[in-house]
Simulated scan of single mutants.
Amino acid sequence: MAVRLDHGDEGLSEISEINVTPFIDVILVLLIIFMIAAPLATVDVSVDLPAANAEKTQRPDKPLFLTLKQDLSLALGNDDMPRAALATALDRATSGDKQQRVFLRADKTVPYGELMTLMNELRSAGYLHVALVGLEAAPVAP
Rank of each mutant, 00 (worst) to 15 (best):
M1K: 12
R4Y: 09
L5Y: 14
H7P: 06
G8K: 10
D9S: 15
L12K: 14
I15V: 12
I15C: 04
S16Q: 14
S16D: 15
E17K: 12
T21K: 15
V26G: 05
V26Q: 06
L28Q: 08
A37H: 02
D44Q: 14
V45K: 04
S46T: 15
P50C: 03
N53D: 15
A54R: 09
A54N: 13
A54C: 11
E55S: 14
K56T: 14
T57H: 10
T57I: 15
R59W: 13
D61F: 08
D61N: 10
L64P: 00
T67E: 01
L68D: 00
L68N: 02
L74H: 03
A75R: 08
A75C: 08
L76V: 00
L76K: 00
N78R: 12
D79A: 14
D79T: 15
D80S: 15
M81S: 04
P82V: 08
A84V: 13
A84F: 08
A84I: 09
A85M: 11
A87E: 10
A87I: 02
T88E: 15
T88D: 13
A89L: 03
T94M: 05
S95Y: 11
G96I: 09
Q100I: 08
V102P: 01
D107N: 08
K108C: 03
K108I: 07
P111Q: 11
Y112P: 03
G113K: 12
L115G: 06
E121A: 14
S124F: 07
L128P: 02
V130C: 00
V130Y: 01
L132T: 11
L132Y: 07
V133I: 08
V133E: 06
V133K: 01
V133W: 04
G134R: 11
E136Q: 13
A137W: 06
A137H: 05
A138Y: 04
P139I: 03
P139T: 02
V140Y: 05
P142I: 04
